[in-house]
């Protein structure tokens, strides 16, 4: 149980980077970008192939990020210059990337066992420094000792650095224009911002994060697979929606924090659901879809119930008020 939740949180932090990317396209740019399903794998593929060929895993991950940026820019170009509908530009890019990813990997699956990856490097350094032992001494859980704390800490740190950078970027002049592009395109172009360029840049950035996340997931899981991106946009959306529902999205900083929280909560729900007897690993996508459906429907139901209760209270109050008013007129007539 603990082991399952622990690894969910680990994975949650890695997927949170992807979720931040989806937040950027879906919420900030108001652009439902399906490129994600493809660019996630592109990141994984580029990193794996580079690592197998002896590249430093950190550099390989950075190159993956760049590859994602380019993929996102192409989607942006299709939409802004090619005048293709947003959904369709994303789907076209996703399909195109499927073949490109196969080209990059050369086959449908690239294992990374026995390779030096970001995960192994960090774990080793961590063990050498003896931090794991120190932590385990302080937090002594009898039933559960994790393999290493390195992944959890390093990924959490990475995610929060990315979150902070993103928060800061969205406060700059360019960042404000980016947000306005998603909020009111007509308005921001009347204030001399090139919305085409901003959309392309925003989608590039979004997919860069997605591909980076893909690169890390591949190294964490020990392989990259051409099918690993299927439904990734839904997982990203689930994280964004769950996060916003649970933690609120009053400001950008709050929303990005919520998205990270949402990514972790999603992983935990998934891990718990898979422990149910009759559900199998192959049901993951179905569970994901159900989680997203619920997280979309439940907040609506809750808020409409709240509204009903509010109206009822109002009606009762008014009735009481009329009684009082009636009593007063009676008194006067006497």
């Amino acid at each position: 149980m603990f082991t399952a939740i622990f690894s969910s949180v680990e994975a949650g932090f890695i997927y949170a980077i992807m979720a931040l990317g989806v937040y950027l396209s879906f919420r900030i740019l108001d652009f439902p970008d399906l490129t994600v399903d493809g660019s996630f794998v592109t990141g994984a593929a580029v990193a794996s192939v580079l690592i197998i060929n002896g590249t430093n895993p950190f550099i390989a991950s950075a190159v993956a990020l760049l590859a994602g940026f380019i993929a996102g820019c192409v989607t942006g170009l299709l939409h802004t210059k090619g005048k293709i509908n947003p959904l369709l530009s994303g789907i076209l890019m996703m399909i195109a990337l499927y073949s490109i990813n196969l080209r990059i990997m050369g086959r449908s699956n690239v294992p990374l066992l026995q390779q030096e990856t970001v995960v192994t490097v960090l774990t080793e350094a961590w063990q050498k420094a003896g931090i794991d032992e120190a932590i385990n001494r302080v937090i002594s859980l009898q039933s559960f000792v994790p393999r290493t704390w390195a992944v959890l800490f390093c990924m959490a740190l990475t995610v929060f650095i990315i979150k902070l950078l993103l928060d800061q970027l969205l406060k700059t002049e360019i960042g404000l224009a980016l947000r306005a592009t998603g909020d009111n395109k007509q308005m921001i172009s009347s204030f001399s911002a090139n919305t085409d360029l901003l959309t392309i840049f925003g989608l590039g950035l979004s997919n860069a994060l997605v591909a980076f996340s893909g690169a890390l997931v591949a190294q964490y899981g020990g392989f990259s697979d051409v099918g690993m991106g299927i439904g990734m946009i839904i997982i990203g959306l689930a994280s964004v929606i769950i996060g916003e529902a649970l933690f609120g999205a009053r400001s950008v900083a709050r929303a990005t924090l919520a998205v990270i929280g949402g990514a972790i909560v999603y992983r935990i729900i998934l891990a718990l659901a898979l422990r149910v007897q009759f559900l199998e690993t192959s049901d993951v996508k179905l569970i994901t879809a159900l989680i997203v459906m619920l997280s979309l429907i439940v907040p609506n139901v809750l808020s409409s119930q709240k509204e009903k209760r509010r109206k009822k209270r109002r009606a009762q109050e008014r009735e009481r008020g009329e009684h009082v008013a009636g009593a007063q007129t009676d008194y006067k007539s006497v």
């Binding site: 970027l169 406060k171 700059t172 960042g175 404000l176 921001i188 001399s192 911002a193």
Partner: peptide
Amino acid sequence: LALAYNRTKRRTLKFGV
């Protein structure tokens, strides 16, 4: 207002507000 303030200038990575 910051968006409008940038109408005549090139937008940069400096803080808008």
